[in-house]
Design a protein around this nucleic acid. Structure first.
Lengths: 335, 335
DNA sequence: GATGAATTTGTTAGCGCTCACAATGGTGTC
DNA sequence: GACACCATTGTGAGCGCTAACAAATTCATC
């Protein structure tokens, strides 16, 4: 359709065709109120005929805004972060923003500064950070990129907005479910404790146990991977110290189930297991996993809401998404 | 460090400070050869002192290049696509490009056109397409965005470059392994056949069987999800028609293993199972899954290589990454 | 119908950069 | 010393757009 050989039409070309000035065309595409109906229609017709599209670079140059949101992430191939990214992308595109990404291979201050610099070079209008690492937030506050920042998985503080799933509450739901089933010895395979989610889930586990007058001494730490869940699972299978395990995420749960299966520990007959995340596969583990669902897409949407508020009004806020317990077959009443 | 209140320094400010013209500064930042050593050093010092960073919009406006690659993807939360994206991102950033993403919620011509339009509005320099759908390629060839296109998971054709893992060969490796173990009745749970990978894997399965003089009539079709693997697995467990199953991906394998476990079909004693992808969890399935590994990061890197070649020389090419069989415990010799 | 206000349209400048070309200075050759 | 030649630096224009202001038009009010 488009005439590929000639240069792209610009404002001036549209103006000429519609018999108005370029500024009037600019007003039309920017939905300026003071344009008469007939002029607007004429201009819109010219735009359609020429297949005109506004040049982003020129616009950015003068407005000093790029209509681009930078998303800084790590572990972006993992279920949670990946889906958060998708949620942000959808909401951003709907709001007329472009989404630029920078993935962190290693979470270091250097890498974070690098990525922020990368975004600033691109003059993004705002940065969304999907790096569930405590360190990252500190690095961000130190660096102060000069554009609005929304952190996913953290409560806002200072100039940074936050969107998070209530991790602590999720952990409490999981533990409450186990307590209801009659369990007293409930262990926890935590994620790394310098991860915000990891720490919050461990805290929720601890809180729920103490509130019920139970001991919270059975705490182990994995690295989120199935492998670490497997290793810890082997130890647990040998010890048999707990009748229920609340695991920090579904992947470690998978490893745990694997280890238990190898060791002849039956789930849920001998030990109940609850995971966290509810990734699509979790319903097909052996046995299907009881877990805590996080609505990552909603999280991504909320993120953009916060970003738009920050962009428009400079407001900083925190929003919390409620988690939900999904009961499957890896948990049962204590015999 | 940066003076946050005043406006950002520009070329002219650097020039003034270094006592040269703005054009000389431009030459320095663009590594133009004809700049004397002393001038270059003086300019570089001024740049460092002022914390100058080039304005991308202004540069784009005149060069008509945005230094941005658009990545169009669907299923971006899945292991394969997500990691391909990360590979592309790393390679792109290393090459000095920004990465903009557009995720397709539904794979339709309309959504694809929409995303391409989105990228063109941003005047990306090139588009990488991670949409393993046959339809998508057709839509792309029809639309002809006017910038280089690299398709992941497809061989190049016409003006489109292609980077792919040799799916057919991967399937052949898997089936050859099963044949070596003495299996004669080898079924296949295929992915959707309008997906390039799905069709290629099914073809590889069929080819390998025929080459060995075996029947290729045990073909079922899932939708890549663990759920579909589970459903098909229930049927297979009832029929017991095959002693080995080659499954189109690891997720369906998980569902299959689940169904077999429920039905009392032992893996690998009764039936051997081979998956495809080798996602990180696959080594922790029950039992650990023999599968075909795809190096997605390498794929992403190759993608960018092709893109850079297309950008620099207008060359179109196809590159193929070799898959690798990872043998674990879901396969065994036929009793 | 004259006056002022509001609405609609046009004019001009400039965002920060690169390109094309012009000017400068130093070197070598005869 | 005059000339050409190269390396280095400077000048001017313009990429396509929006902001600020100016001009033209319409409308309401007395």
């Amino acid at each position: 359709m488009a005439n590929s050989s000639a240069r792209l039409p610009r404002l001036e070309d549209v103006a000429e065709r519609a018999g108005v000035s370029h500024q009037t065309v600019s007003r039309v595409i920017n939905n300026h109120p003071n344009v008469s109906k007939s002029t607007r229609e004429r201009v819109e017709a010219a735009i359609a005929e020429l297949g005109y599209r506004r040049n982003t670079a020129a616009r950015s140059l003068v407005t000093r805004r790029s209509q681009t949101i930078g998303v800084l992430g790590s572990e972006l191939s993992q279920y949670g972060p990946a889906n958060t990214l998708l949620g942000v992308e959808q909401a951003a595109r709907d709001a007329g923003y472009f989404v630029s990404i920078a993935a962190l291979r290693t979470v270091s201050r250097e890498a974070i500064f690098d990525a922020i610099q990368h975004f600033l070079d691109q003059s993004v209008d705002g940065i969304v950070v999907i790096v569930p690492h405590v360190e990252t937030l500190l690095a961000l506050e130190e660096q102060a990129p000069g554009v609005p920042v929304v952190a996913v998985g953290a409560s806002g503080s200072g100039s940074v907005s936050g969107a998070m799933v209530d991790q602590k509450r999720g952990a409490e739901l999981a533990v409450a479910h186990l307590i209801e089933q009659g369990h007293h010895r409930i262990g926890h395979i935590a994620g790394p404790q310098d991860w915000i989610d990891g720490a919050a889930r461990a805290e929720g586990w601890s809180t729920a146990l103490r509130a019920a007058g139970l001991a919270d001494d059975l705490l182990m730490e994995g690295d989120w991977s199935a492998g670490s869940g497997y290793e810890i699972g082997r130890e647990l299978a040998a010890e048999r110290s707990a009748t229920a395990i609340f695991v920090g995420n579904d992947q470690m749960s998978l490893g745990l189930l694997r280890a238990f299966n190898e060791a002849g520990v039956r789930v849920p007959e001998d030990v109940s297991v609850v995971g966290f995340d509810d990734q699509p596969e979790s319903g097909y583990f052996t046995p299907p996993l009881t877990t805590v669902r996080q609505d990552f897409e909603e999280l991504g949407r909320r993120c953009m809401d916060l970003m738009l508020a920050a962009l428009a009004k400079g407001e900083t806020a925190t929003t919390v998404v409620e988690p939900e317990l999904v009961i499957r077959r890896s948990t049962a009443a204590l015999a």
